[in-house]
């Protein structure tokens, strides 16, 4: 058992190990944004009510605002910064641009990570089901139709869906 005010913590984000000295109150979201400097993951509500903070943990999408960084040692955390490989965008990123699945761009990393998580879960083919599966990500600019179109395009590109 460990009991300490400031904890030493090893966080593996996008394949890189980060050693942090951290107040246990720091959420996974704030660790990414304020401690590691990965500001691609956004804080919209900080209460699990908007989805802007969505990241993948061991491939599954979660809200990084509602959980503590100290609980995520020995996991693989993937953020929006990891999706593009150099100049080459992830197909979901490219599809979001093509279908204008965003306006201000603030919810966009969360939308894209959620969409990538959805693909891994086995994306439904029906628009209505995709919308339901993406309803944990609020877009106030309301680019919803473009988001659904982008996901449909990437889904259809995948051979086994």
């Amino acid at each position: 058992m460990v009991n300490s005010d400031n904890l030493n913590l090893l966080l593996k984000v996008n394949g890189t190990q980060h050693t942090l000295q951290i107040d246990p109150r720091v959420t996974l979201l704030d660790a990414l944004r304020e401690k590691i400097g990965l500001t691609g993951t956004k804080k919209g509500c900080d209460r699990g009510q908007c989805g802007a903070c969505t990241v993948l943990v061991d491939g599954r999408r979660i809200n990084s605002c509602l959980t503590l960084a100290v609980m995520y040692q020995e996991t693989e955390i993937t953020t929006i910064e990891e999706l593009a490989k150099g100049d080459e965008l992830h197909p979901m990123q490219a599809a979001f641009i093509k279908h204008d699945g965003f306006q201000c761009g603030y919810c966009t990393p969360g939308q894209i990570m959620s969409a990538v998580g959805l693909l891994a879960e086995g994306c439904p083919s029906d628009d209505a089901e995709i919308k339901e599966c993406m309803s944990g990500n609020i877009c106030r600019c309301s680019a919803y139709p473009g988001i659904v179109a982008a996901i449909q395009e990437v889904r259809q590109m995948q051979p086994n869906l």
Binding site: R33, G37, L38, T39, G40, T41, K42, T79, I80, E81, L83, A84, L89, Q93, A94, F96, I97, K98, D100, F102, G105, Y106, T108, P109, I112
Partner: peptide
């Protein structure tokens, strides 16, 4: 045509006011 800032926004590189180092 596509947004000129699309790439910055879909990659998380776009810096909003609370994110300036």
């Amino acid at each position: 045509i596509n947004r000129v800032d699309g790439r910055l926004k879909v990659t998380g590189e776009a810096k909003y006011s609370g994110e300036i180092p």
